[in-house]
């Protein structure tokens, strides 16, 4: 039985994991404490992103090179709504997710008939388009000046200004997203996606409406990306177009390739390993070499492809 099937059913698996994550903010780490917690929070954000991206290339088999577009879209939706209207996180977040889903569908509808590389190019272009709009529409997004001073997350009118509170908050969202994707994976909907991934014609012949299931996947994936972006904006309190560069799309894609395309636990593990690793390298490497960490990153992927081409926790069992 694959690990993904056991996520919410095997107590031996999830109780220790949950305990480990829950105590993390309270471990005595001295002066490194706040930094570790920051990296942990960031890792959880990337876990959400990896799970969201996984829906499209992992489940429906369409390569998405533009996931950062939805991340940025969510961040800017939430950031701008917060700055202009001071709305609560719990209103802004669903709106950002809905906006993400809307643009996800809009991107998906004309690309339904595209396959493989062509689809990948469109996703790349669309994401660049979103970021270009963000960068240039000064009246809406302040462009390269960024959006500073976004309010921190809140709950029931209380501001969550402690780092551990933000950590628990994103943990909650991670749990939510995890629940959704795990439930779907073993359901009629998830199977329909797998069928589309394996063979579209055979999928049609068992009664799967390929177009509408692709649209659902696009919407869900984009909504999750936007959700992560919305949290990110409220947590980081400042957003800027440079945060959503093409490189980020590749990074998120790397996480799921590393973990195993289509594998939920793989996506989590990929984020768990690679995100802290990049942070660690940032410390270890001398300042002038700090960009060389991407080099190591590339090396890891190359070696992965050589030794475990299907990822750390592949979906297919031989």
């Amino acid at each position: 039985m694959h690990l993904d099937d056991r996520l919410f059913t095997d107590k031996k698996l999830y109780l220790p994991l949950l305990a480990a994550v829950l105590v993390l903010p309270w471990l005595p780490m001295g002066i490194a404490g706040p930094y570790v917690l920051r990296v942990a929070t960031l890792t959880l954000v990337y876990m959400v992103l990896a799970l969201g991206l996984n829906v499209v290339p992992g489940f429906t088999g369409l390569l998405d090179l533009g996931y950062v577009g939805f991340f940025g879209l969510g961040a800017y939706t939430a950031g701008l709504l917060t700055v202009h209207y001071q709305w609560s996180l719990w209103l802004v977040l669903p709106l950002a997710a809905l906006n993400g889903a809307f643009w996800g569908i809009l991107r998906g509808a004309p690309t339904l008939r595209l396959s493989d590389d062509y689809f990948a190019i469109v996703t790349f272009g669309f994401s660049e388009l979103i970021i270009l709009v963000i960068r240039n529409e000064l009246w809406l997004t302040r462009g390269p000046m960024g959006v500073p001073g976004i309010a921190q997350p809140d709950i029931f009118g209380k501001v969550l200004d402690q780092p551990w509170q933000a950590f628990y908050l994103i943990l909650f969202f991670l749990f939510l997203v995890l629940w959704v994707v795990v439930k779907i994976r073993s359901s009629r909907l998830g199977r329909a996606w797998f069928a589309v991934r394996e063979d579209e014609i055979a999928a049609e012949c068992v009664g799967v409406n390929v177009a509408s299931y692709k649209i659902i996947a696009f919407a869900l994936s984009a909504a999750i990306g936007a959700l992560a972006g919305a949290f990110y904006a409220r947590w980081f309190r400042f957003i800027h177009p440079d945060m959503f560069k093409f490189w980020e799309s590749i990074l998120i894609l790397c996480l799921i390739v590393f973990g195993g395309m289509g594998s939920i636990t793989g996506a989590l593990l990929g984020a768990l390993i690679l995100i802290p690793l990049t942070e660690l390298l940032r410390i270890v490497l001398p300042a002038e070499l700090s960009n060389a960490r991407y080099l190591l990153f590339g090396l890891i992927i190359v070696f992965m492809m050589r030794w475990r081409p299907a990822g750390l926790l592949p979906v297919e069992k031989e």
Partner: peptide, 11 residues
């Protein structure tokens, strides 16, 4: 998957 067209559970 063959049962797909005879079931209707949604998202």
């Amino acid at each position: 998957l063959g049962r797909h067209c005879r079931t209707r559970a949604n998202f």
